[in-house]
C-alpha cells in the first residue's frame, strides 16, 4: 500500500476548479516530485493534502486512513509536515523559537533535543543564528529554517512547496542536497517545484501537472528524457 494516495481529487477555490481529478501516490522512502508551470495546481494539491482545502470529490489517504475528515492541525499529528511556499517562517520570532514551534505537537523532550541537534547539523548556519529574529535572515537561511522547522515535527512525510523559489543557484544546490540527505535518513518526500531540472535530478518519480490535471507520470529519469518535458519545463530545444 502506498504511503500517501490521492484518488480522483477535485478541489475548488470558490467556483474555480483548481484540481480536476488528480490521482497520485507516494511510496514510503521515495522522493516524488510534482512539476508544472504557475497555476497548474501544484500548491493546491499540497493544500488539499494538508487539509487547508477540502476536496469536493475524491479521497486523500495516508496509509489507508482518510485524511479529508481531519482539520489541518490534526493532520500534522498523523506525521505530515509542510514547508509552505514563500517559506512561511514566523518572522518576528527567533530561529530557536521557530524550531521550537515546529515541535509543537511533541512532548518527548529528549527526542526534541535530538532533532534540534540534527537540524543544526544539517544547517550549521541556523545554529549560528539561533537567537536572531527570523525575519532578518537571508532568503536561503529562511528556507533552511522552514525545512528545519518542518523536520522538528519528526514527520514521516515531508511536503516541500517550491523550496528553490527566489534563491541563488548555489543555495538551491545546497538545499536540494539536504533534501536528499533528509530522505536518506528515512523521511518520505513530496516535492513541488517549478525548477523541474533540479527536482527531476533528485527525485525517484515525478508527475507533470497542467491546469489541474496530471498529464504525465513516470520515473524521474524517463521524464528527464521525455521530449515534451524537455521542451516545456527544461527549456531545451
Amino acid at each position: 500500500m502506498a504511503m500517501l494516495e490521492l484518488k480522483d481529487v477535485h478541489s475548488f477555490y470558490g467556483n474555480i476548479e483548481a484540481l480536476k481529478g488528480i490521482s497520485l501516490y507516494v511510496d514510503e522512502g521515495e522522493i516524488v516530485t510534482l512539476i508544472g508551470a504557475n497555476g497548474a495546481g501544484k500548491t493546491t494539491t499540497l493544500r488539499t493534502i494538508t487539509g487547508l482545502i477540502k476536496p469536493r470529490q475524491g479521497t486523500v489517504t495516508l496509509e489507508g486512513e482518510d485524511l479529508t475528515k481531519f482539520k489541518p492541525h490534526e493532520i500534522v499529528y498523523k506525521g505530515v509536515s509542510m514547508v509552505p511556499e514563500g517559506r512561511g517562517i514566523f518572522a518576528r520570532l527567533t530561529v530557536a523559537e521557530n524550531l521550537d514551534l515546529g515541535a509543537y505537537i511533541r512532548n518527548d523532550k529528549e527526542g526534541i533535543k535530538e532533532d534540534l541537534e540534527r537540524v543544526y547539523e544539517l544547517f550549521p548556519r541556523l545554529k549560528e543564528r539561533r537567537n536572531q529574529v527570523a525575519g532578518t535572515l537571508s532568503g536561503g537561511e529562511q528556507q533552511m529554517l522552514a525545512i528545519g522547522r518542518a523536520l522538528m515535527a519528526r514527520p514521516r512525510l515531508l511536503l516541500l512547496d517550491e523550496p528553490s523559489m527566489g534563491l541563488a543557484p548555489v543555495l538551491v544546490e545546497l538545499i536540494f542536497d539536504t533534501i536528499v540527505d533528509i530522505n536518506k535518513q528515512g523521511t518520505t518526500i513530496l516535492l513541488v517545484e517549478q525548477n523541474a531540472l533540479m527536482a527531476l535530478s533528485i527525485a525517484h518519480r515525478g508527475y507533470v501537472l497542467r491546469t489541474g490535471e496530471i498529464v504525465l507520470a513516470d520515473s524521474a529519469e524517463n521524464l528527464r528524457n521525455n521530449e515534451m518535458v524537455q521542451k516545456t519545463y527544461l527549456g531545451m530545444e
Partner: peptide
C-alpha cells in the same frame, strides 16, 4: 508560543499542529 505563532501567520501555525 501558540499565541505568538497564530499572531504571525494563522495558516502556518495550523501547519505546525496548533
Amino acid at each position: 508560543r501558540a499565541w505568538m505563532a497564530m499572531r504571525e501567520d494563522e495558516d502556518v501555525a495550523e501547519a505546525m499542529g496548533i
